[in-house]
Structure formats: C-alpha cells, structure tokens
Design a protein around this nucleic acid. Structure first.
Lengths: 171, 171
DNA sequence: TCCTAAGATGAGTGCGTACTCCGGTTCACT
DNA sequence: AGTGAACCGGAGTACGCACTCATCTTAGGA
C-alpha cells in the first residue's frame, strides 16, 4: 500500500504539517490559506504541497483521522452521547462541518455504519422509536452540526436544542 | 430616508439587477461571481456596483426582501407550517441560509419577533410544550435550514426529519 | 568520508473575483 | 432643441490563493 518508507525529516515534517493544519483549520475553517498552515508548521509552502499535492488532500487526511477517532468513540457511546459528541466537535472545530457536507459522501459512509449500529442498539433498548430510520438520524446530525457551528450556539443552548431533538426521537 | 428619486433607466436597471441576483444566487449560492449577475441582468458590471457598492449590499438587499416576504407569511401560518416553509426555501434557494447565519444578526431580529409570536400562539393552542424557549426554536430553524441545504435532503427526507423535530416540540 | 537521490525552499505563475475609473451615452428639465 | 447632470460600459487594477519549479540542502547507505 505505502510505496516507500519516508526519510526521517520527511516523516517529521509530515506530522508537523498535519498537526498545524488541524489547528489552523479548526480555528479558521477549511477556507484558511495553505500558507498559514505552512507558517504554523514552520515549513515552506512547497513542502506542504510535496506531502499533500492538493489542499483537498490535506483536508481529507485530517478528516480521515477524525473519522477514525469518531468511529472509535462510537463503540463506547450510546446514540445520544455520540450525537452530542459530534455536535460539540462541530461547534469547536469549524472544519468538522466539511465532514458533514455532501461532497465528502465517501468517508461519511463509514460513519453512517457506526450510527446505524448505535441506532439499532437504541431501538432495542427502547430509547428510540422503532419507525425512525437511519437517514433521518443522519440528517438531524448534519443539521445540528451545521447549526451549532454557523449559529454559534452556546453550551447551554446546544444542550437544550439537542434535548428537543432527542425528545423527538424517543417513544 | 431615500435621498433623491432615481432616473427612469436607473430604476429599471436596479430592478433588473435585483431580479437577476435573486435568480443567480438562488441557483449558485451567494458565492456566485458578481459578473454572472451582471450578465443575467443584461447590464455591465460597473452598473451593478453603482447600485450596490459592495457585493454584501447586493446580498443584503435580496435578504431584506425575502425577510419581508417571510414576515408576511408568518402572519397566516402556524409555527410548524412556517418552519416547513423556511426550511423548504433554504433547500431551494441556496442563499437563504445566509439569512440564517450569524453575520446577518441584525435583520434576523425581525424574523425572531415573528417566530416568537408563532411560538406563543402554538403554546396557547397546546401544540408546543410550555418550557420551550424562543432561542431553541430559532436554533432548530437554523439547523434544519443549514442541514436541508448542505445535506441535500429530498422532499421525503425533509418531511420525516421535520416530523422528528416537531415531535420533540410537542407536549 | 563521499555521493546521490530524496527532500526543502520560496519566489513566481495563473486564475478567479471584488471593485475602480473615465470616456461615452441618455434622461429630463427649460 | 439644447444642456448638464446622472448614468452606463467594460477594460483595467488589486489582491488572495492554490499550485509550480529551478536551485540548494541533507539524510543515510557504500
């Protein structure tokens, strides 16, 4: 899969870029200039593009990491906890909403698998009505994530808003 | 308020630009280039900037019109109908979501007034729980609008998703 | 230690887009 | 009709940003 092992300095720089990009994109959104990422990583811009030929590749790499982390978290959460986790992440890290966007339909498929399992479990436990379908839950997740970010919800408002959604899901 | 009456041709062009902008922004989102609006209006780009010195002024003018129309509709709707109307508009006219964004906090105040009335009425009619507050409803409205647009909900999915939200609001 | 290919650098290129400016055109008033 | 102010056209400017490339640097094997 991975062609050749990277040279030590290259590996170090790659990690720095990834870390810097996560920080910059979280603060400024994925619209932030690549030069900012380079500066934050203490690296020239050419180096960033050597590792990630396209800006989208860079965003994609971060998203992939995040997706893996969320997938991991899903294993130990119940549906409502997971829901809250994703929305909170969206509120704090602007670029997370890109994950929820249509364009990234590929990677999100794996997330939807995890949510599907949580939904099934929640139904069995009687926490969610049986007729609720996966796509509605995904839609609500998207909506809440977008809303939390773009609406700038406070922690209190976020909690109350999610409470309404959860009430709508319960029997 | 309005300084001087516009010349006839200027008035005509202004109206054309507004109509063209509404169409273009609805289709392509507010990110569409101003040149496209000028072309659609059959007018040179300089003319657009004469009437609206800034792109934001142009978007703002359209938003103001839309806001007035929604405020009018609110008088005859109940809360759930109005909610559906706004979300549907968001799904069909991309730029409507800008209305829901924080940046336009000024104009949205008037909308929130209308929603407040609808909420009061709905509570009196027993259609909504008494402890629901206005900001939660507004947050849900923002969320659903953003989600509908960026998630590309179908009419069916939109209806089912809104049904969950409405269920959460009811006693 | 030396050699070379992988890697880093950063000024430069191309492009899209908001906005300007001035010469030409048109309205509207007398 | 004549006149001047308002208006229009559209090439041009400024700017930000993704991405490139010729040149210099360095890791790491022989």
């Amino acid at each position: 899969m991975s062609s050749k092992p990277l040279r030590a300095d290259a590996r170090r720089n790659r990690a720095r870029i990834l870390a810097a990009a996560e920080e910059v994109f979280a603060a400024r959104g994925a619209g932030a200039a690549t030069e900012e990422v380079a500066a934050a990583a203490g690296v020239a811009i050419g180096t960033v593009f050597r590792h990630f030929p396209t800006k989208q590749d860079l965003v994609g790499a971060i998203l992939k990491d995040l997706l893996a982390a969320l997938g991991e978290a899903a294993k130990e959460d119940d549906l409502f906890t997971f829901f809250t986790r994703v929305v909170t992440a969206a509120a704090e890290k602007k670029f997370v909403v890109e994950l929820l966007d249509v364009e990234v339909a590929g990677p999100i498929a794996s997330l939807s698998g995890a949510v599907g399992e949580l939904l099934d479990r929640a139904k069995l436990a009687g926490a969610v009505r049986a007729e609720i379908e996966l796509d509605e839950v995904l839609a609500l997740l998207t909506a809440a994530g977008q809303g939390a970010l773009r609406g700038g919800w406070s922690a209190d408002l976020r909690a109350r808003t999610l409470a309404v959604i959860f009430a709508g899901l319960r029997p």
